[in-house]
Amino acid sequence: MAELLIGKKALSFDRHEIDRNLAISFVSAIKEDRLLQILEDHIVNEDNIEQLKEVANLAKRCLSLRKEDRPSMNEVAVELERLRIMGKHSLGNIDIGVKEGFELKDL
């Protein structure tokens, strides 16, 4: 999710040393309230900022170092479905990847 939100690979030696690891720089940006600065420009509009923040915070939870702090894939799917339904009209061009009727067994 973080890769999709900011349009960068998980690891890249082409970036400055501090930004090479996407997970670390992504989590830092959220903690420093810089999320809107790093998001892909084409996915952000004034109607979907709150949904994007929720997706970003979900991605941040998925990147937690402690297993106990990470959501299960089922929890992720349920949360993405909730966000999709709530923001169906306001998300515009964003498809966060969960289809109606989606279940983990479909993977």
Rank of each mutant, 00 (worst) to 15 (best):
A2E: 06
A2R: 03
L5D: 03
I6E: 11
I6N: 12
G7Q: 09
G7P: 08
K9A: 14
A10N: 10
L11E: 13
S12I: 04
F13T: 15
D14S: 13
R15I: 03
I18M: 06
I18D: 11
D19A: 01
R20V: 11
N21M: 08
L22G: 05
L22F: 05
A23S: 14
I24P: 02
I24C: 07
F26W: 07
F26Q: 01
S28R: 13
A29R: 00
A29V: 00
K31P: 02
K31D: 13
E32A: 07
D33R: 04
D33W: 00
R34T: 00
L35P: 07
Q37G: 00
Q37E: 03
L39Y: 08
L39G: 02
E40R: 13
E40L: 09
D41P: 11
H42F: 02
H42I: 10
I43Y: 02
V44L: 07
V44P: 10
V44S: 03
E46F: 13
I49Y: 09
Q51E: 15
L52D: 06
K53R: 12
N57H: 14
N57L: 12
L58D: 06
K60P: 02
K60N: 13
K60T: 05
R61S: 05
L63F: 06
S64W: 03
R66W: 02
R66E: 11
K67F: 09
K67V: 14
E68V: 14
S72W: 00
S72P: 03
S72V: 10
S72T: 13
N74I: 11
E75Q: 13
E75N: 05
V76R: 00
V76C: 02
L80Q: 08
L80R: 04
R82N: 07
R84Q: 09
M86G: 06
M86Q: 14
L91I: 07
N93S: 15
I94V: 15
D95N: 15
K99H: 07
E103H: 15
K105Y: 09
K105C: 12
D106V: 11
D106I: 12
L107Y: 12
